[in-house]
C-alpha cells in the first residue's frame, strides 16, 4: 500500500499533572478512514487538536503529509481540513455567505472558487437554497455544509471531531456515505466518535481509554481478542447479583453487565453454559436464558478497558 500520510509516534499531552494523551502512536494511509473510539475524556479530541496544530504536544512526534505538527503548525493548517464538534458555521449568515467567507479565508477566487462552491452545495444537498439563513437549517444539512466548508481547499487529510452528534439517523447515514466517497477519492480521514456503529464503518479503529490506545486494528482484527473463546449472553433477573456469583468461577473469564443481560466469556460454549446454569440455579435464579452470541465491538471495548485498568492497578 502507499506511504502513510499521518505518522504519529509517542504523542503525549499533559495539562499540569493530568495526562490527557499518553504515548499514542499510529499511522493512517491515503483513502483510509481511521476511527478514534472512546468515551468522553478519553483523549480523542486532544489528540486531534494536536494533529491540527492547535495544541503543542508535550512529547512525541507527528508528521502529516511530511509536515512536523509541532514545528510548522501554520503550514500544516493549509494542508488539512478540520470539522469541530459543533459544525462551526455562522448561523447569522446565509449558506452562500458562509461559503464565500470560508472561500475567502482559503484564498479561493474566480473560477476555482465557483467550482468548489458548486461542489460544496452539491455534497451538502443545498442547491437552490444558497440564500437561506444557515441557522434555519436542520442539523443534518448544517453538518454536511460544515464539512463542505472545511473541505473547500481540497485537503488530503481531514479530521472530523464527533461529526454526527445531535444528528438524526438518516442524516448520519448520508454523512457516512460522504465520508466513504471522500476516502474513495484518496483522502485520509480521522473520525472521533463514541458511537460503536459508526466505529464499525471505519477501516481501522484505535480504542482510547484514559489517554492511551488500548487496542488498534480493523473490526475483525479487534474481535480476535476473543478467539478460541466463546461469548454467552445470559438473561436473568438481578443481573448484578448474578454477575457477582459468576465471576471467579472456573472456565469463566469475564462477566459484563449489559442492561438486563450479562455477557460472559468462557473457554468452551457447552461447558460454560452448564457452569452458568448450575451456579445460578443453585442461587435461585430462575428461569434462565443462555445464548451464544458473536462478540460486538462493545464487548471488545469493555474487554480492553478492563484489561487496561487491571494492568494499571497491577503496576
Amino acid at each position: 500500500m502507499n506511504q502513510p500520510v499521518i505518522e504519529v509516534r509517542g504523542l503525549v499531552k499533559r495539562f499540569g499533572d493530568f495526562v490527557s494523551v499518553d504515548d499514542v502512536s499510529f499511522d493512517v494511509r491515503p483513502g483510509e478512514v481511521f476511527g478514534l473510539l472512546g468515551s468522553n475524556g478519553a483523549g480523542k479530541t486532544t489528540t486531534i487538536r494536536m494533529l491540527c496544530g492547535l495544541l503543542r504536544p508535550s512529547a512525541g512526534v507527528g508528521h502529516i503529509l511530511g509536515i512536523d505538527i509541532a514545528r510548522e503548525p501554520e503550514r500544516l493548517k493549509r494542508s488539512i481540513g478540520y470539522m469541530t464538534q459543533r459544525f462551526s458555521l455562522y448561523d447569522d449568515l446565509t449558506i452562500g455567505q458562509n461559503l464565500r467567507f470560508f472561500g475567502g479565508v482559503y484564498g479561493l477566487r474566480g473560477a476555482a472558487f465557483d467550482a468548489r462552491r458548486s461542489w460544496a452545495i452539491d455534497i451538502a444537498g443545498l442547491r437552490g437554497k444558497e440564500g437561506l439563513m444557515t441557522g434555519s437549517l436542520p442539523g443534518g444539512w448544517k453538518q454536511r455544509l460544515a464539512l463542505a466548508c472545511a473541505l473547500l481547499h481540497e485537503p488530503k487529510v481531514v479530521f472530523l471531531d464527533e461529526p454526527t452528534g445531535g444528528v438524526d439517523p438518516l442524516s448520519r447515514r448520508k454523512f457516512w456515505q460522504l465520508i466513504d466517497s471522500l476516502a474513495a477519492s484518496g483522502v485520509a480521514l480521522i473520525v472521533t466518535t463514541h458511537y460503536l456503529d459508526e466505529a464499525e464503518r471505519c477501516d481501522r479503529i484505535a480504542l482510547m481509554h484514559a489517554g492511551r490506545i488500548v487496542a488498534m486494528g480493523s473490526v475483525p482484527e479487534l474481535k480476535e481478542v476473543f478467539s478460541g473463546r466463546a461469548m454467552l449472553e445470559v438473561s436473568c433477573p438481578r443481573v448484578l447479583d448474578a454477575q457477582a456469583l459468576l465471576e471467579r468461577r472456573p472456565g469463566i473469564h469475564e462477566v459484563s453487565a449489559f442492561g438486563t443481560t450479562l455477557h460472559v466469556v468462557v473457554d468452551d460454549a457447552d461447558h460454560g453454559r452448564a457452569t452458568i446454569a448450575s451456579t445460578l440455579a443453585g442461587a435461585g435464579f430462575d428461569p434462565l436464558e443462555i445464548e451464544r452470541i458473536v462478540p460486538s465491538l462493545e464487548d471488545v471495548f469493555i474487554h480492553c478497558i478492563e484489561a487496561e485498568d487491571e494492568r494499571r492497578d497491577a503496576s
Binding site: C52, G53, L54, E74, K77, R78, I80, Y82, T84, Q85, R86, S88, L89, Y90, D91, F102, V105, Y106, G107, A150, H153
Partner: peptide, 14 residues
C-alpha cells in the same frame, strides 16, 4: 462562544 473561533484557528487564516 459559538465555536467558530476554533474553526478559524484551524484554517490558514493568519
Amino acid at each position: 462562544e459559538r465555536g467558530t473561533m476554533e474553526q478559524l484557528r484551524v484554517t490558514s487564516l493568519r
